[in-house]
Amino acid sequence: MASDSIPTASELEASGFVMRRRLLGNVMRVVMFLSAALSVFVTTSIVVILVSESWVFFQTVPIVEFLTGTVWTPVFTDARFGILPLLVATIEVATLALIIAIPLGTIMAVYLSEYAPNSVRETIKPALEMLEAVPTVVFGYFALLVMTPFLQNFIPGLNGINLLVPSIIIGIMILPYVVSVSEDAMRAVPNGLREGAYALGMARWQVAFRVVIPGAFSGITAAYILGMSRAVGETMVLAIAGGQNPNLTFDPREGAATITAYIVQMSLGDLPHGSLAYSTIFSTGLVLFLLTLSFNVAGFYLRKRFREVY
């Protein structure tokens, strides 16, 4: 009868390696699950807090009046709670910023992807992304103290506090997001598509705008949505240079308060906890959350509709 074989040192070492690898795999699986669960938990907690605190507000203020009212004076004796002035200013700033960032960012991304040599690309792209490291307070005071006096020499009727200059600054601030994500999406387009277009006699600019951009449309859309969300959520530039007066205006030369600027203003105030004016912080925050969420949902469906898999 043959006796059981005794495992060798190499077999024991291999067995221990397999056990350690299996244990490490299980640990990493748990860590990644907890990381994903944490993001879901934080998002859910934010939504629960916004909805629960806003519910107290909407028990007193009708939602129709809140969404259609044109006067926002929550701390006045005769309080009015029409969010349209804040909402119009927020959308106006985001739109003006995107008018600057989207064309300029797309052209820069095309240059970096299709025209620039590697040395130039590796220099310009990190330098552009360094804009993200500049504090927004610095941008705010730059808009207030430098850009506004300069543009007042060329734009008649431009107030010292206005929405136009902060929109321009925000458009510059979101350029790194638009350029970086768009350029990555363009470089992901297979070279075979470019070579086929060149074989058909297309010029380089035709290849870029008729082949590469349509092929990278889903990624470019993601860049635009990211920039839009960043523009909608910008706070300090608007709080410093855009004004804090909830003025319903469609003229960007005038100052007005956006949703984020109002939240900053009320958060720094001396509002009693649990008051109706205090609840407006959460009701306006809920509107801002839903506005950003709608942009991201629209971007998701656009990416899903036009996504190219290579």
Rank of each mutant, 00 (worst) to 15 (best):
L286E: 08
L288F: 05
V287Y: 12
D270M: 11
S275I: 03
F295I: 05
L288S: 05
L286C: 09
F282M: 05
L288D: 05
G274N: 02
L290T: 13
D270C: 03
T280N: 10
F295K: 02
N296E: 00
G269K: 11
P272Y: 05
S283I: 06
G274Y: 00
I281H: 01
T284I: 08
L276F: 07
L293N: 07
S279L: 08
V287N: 11
Q265A: 13
H273R: 11
H273G: 11
L268D: 04
T284C: 09
F295L: 15
L271C: 11
S275Y: 01
F289G: 03
S294T: 15
G285T: 07
T284R: 09
L286N: 11
Q265W: 05
D270F: 12
H273Y: 09
N296P: 02
L276E: 11
N296I: 00
Q265D: 12
L290W: 07
L268A: 05
T292Q: 06
G285S: 14
T284K: 09
G285N: 07
S275F: 03
F295P: 00
V297C: 06
L276M: 11
A277F: 02
P272S: 03
V287S: 13
H273F: 13
L290V: 14
G285W: 04
S279D: 13
S283V: 06
T280Q: 09
G274W: 00
N296Q: 00
Q265M: 11
A277W: 01
L268S: 10
L290D: 13
L291V: 14
L271M: 09
V297D: 08
G269Q: 12
I281C: 00
L276K: 10
L293Q: 07
L293C: 06
F295Q: 00
S294V: 15
F289K: 00
L271R: 09
Y278H: 14
Q265P: 05
F295E: 02
I281S: 03
G269M: 10
Q265V: 06
S294G: 14
M266K: 13
M266V: 14
M266Y: 12
P272V: 02
G274V: 02
G269D: 14
S267D: 02
F295Y: 08
L268Y: 03
I281T: 00
T280W: 08
T284L: 09
L293F: 13
F282P: 05
L276G: 10
G269E: 10
Y278D: 15
F282V: 07
G274M: 01
S283M: 07
